[in-house]
């Protein structure tokens, strides 16, 4: 994705207050808005890149989940994992879709990062208390170096458009299993998941978590292009051409993670991270072994990007 496309793909804050709120927006670093059409010109005159968006325009957009985690109160086991509400699978499934987040307080910055990572056409309706954190994230996103690397995928999923498959896609992405969504089985992949086949009977979609685990074990962890250690609430998106790689890391857990260990297939001796809220961060304890690269991201807030290079 080149720089212009990347910037265009950034999500848009939907802002209904009057133009006298402009100083607060500017202070937050936000200069691009979606506003009610009647106010668009006023906002432009105030120096903002404003796009008119009516209630009707909003109404036709799909509403993604507010990203984050839910602790499942029905589970008392010590090993329970939090349930992650994430939308990457939706964006992968329908890259041309239009979305309008409706976000409670505390979720705007993560939603902005999530939408940007997947290049989603997304509008953000936020709690005004999140303006500053959203602004900081938007500034961070806008400053990221452009990147046009192709997505990495370990397996293909044939999309039948069904809701059950949607939940399977969700859980595959949630488990950091890198997928390519296709219309028909692809010869490029050793694993093609197609519901309703002998290998993936429709009934198995009724237990999407079990099906995702089955697929993971068919692939094997050793063959996966991406592994994340030290957290179960970080979702990655990996792009690479073999000589360079970019890894997006979205932290849905709501608290900073220290010492996140990453395993990426391929030999990438050089690399660094750009972490929202921290800027440029060196990767720690790097190791390249058996055709894979491992490193530690010292601290990860809501979002970080790791750029890797095969050049010594």
């Amino acid at each position: 994705m080149n720089l212009l496309l990347w910037l265009a793909a950034l999500p848009c804050l939907y802002w209904t207050p009057a133009v006298d709120s402009a100083p607060r927006l500017k202070a937050a670093g936000i200069d691009r808005l979606c506003v009610p059409p009647a106010r668009a010109e006023q906002w432009r005159q105030a120096g903002f890149a404003a796009v008119g968006l009516s209630e009707a325009d909003l109404a036709v957009r799909d509403t993604p989940l507010a990203p984050g985690i839910r602790v499942r109160a029905d589970r008392a086991s010590a090993t329970r994992s939090p349930w992650v509400d994430a939308n990457g699978w939706r964006f992968l499934r329908d890259p041309a879709g239009q979305y309008a987040y409706d976000l409670p307080a505390g979720r705007a910055a993560l939603a902005a990062a999530e939408a940007a990572v997947y290049g989603a056409d997304a509008v953000l309706r936020i709690d005004p208390a999140d303006l500053e954190s959203l602004g900081a994230m938007m500034v961070f996103l806008a400053q990221l170096p452009a990147n046009d690397l192709p997505d990495v995928a370990d397996l293909a999923v044939v999309d039948d458009g069904s809701a059950p498959l949607g939940e399977v896609l969700n859980l595959l992405v949630r488990r950091n299993l890198l997928i390519r969504i296709v219309k028909a089985p692809s010869p490029d992949f050793g694993i093609n998941v197609k519901l309703g086949t002998k290998e993936y009977p429709l009934r198995e979609a009724g237990e999407p978590s079990a099906l995702a685990l089955k697929i993971r074990r068919q692939l094997t962890d050793e063959q996966r292009a991406l592994r994340v250690f030290g957290s179960e609430v970080v979702i990655g998106r990996l792009a690479s051409d073999g000589s360079r790689a970019r890894l997006h890391l979205l932290n849905y857990g709501g608290r900073e993670i220290e010492g996140l260990r990453i395993h990426v297939r391929g030999s990438f001796p050089r690399g660094e991270a750009l972490v929202a809220g921290q800027g440029r961060v060196g990767l720690e304890e790097r190791a390249v072994v058996n055709g894979a690269t491992e490193f530690t991201v010292p601290r990860l807030g809501l979002y970080g990007v790791v750029d890797l290079s095969a050049l010594e």
Partner: peptide, 24 residues
């Protein structure tokens, strides 16, 4: 499960016990 810096990334036991994502 948010502070990992007190642990050695090169010394571990890896196992997939219940399908957990973090196997180390």
């Amino acid at each position: 499960r948010a502070d990992n810096r007190g642990y050695d990334p090169a010394t571990y036991v890896e196992a997939d016990l219940f399908g957990e994502e973090d196997t180390r």
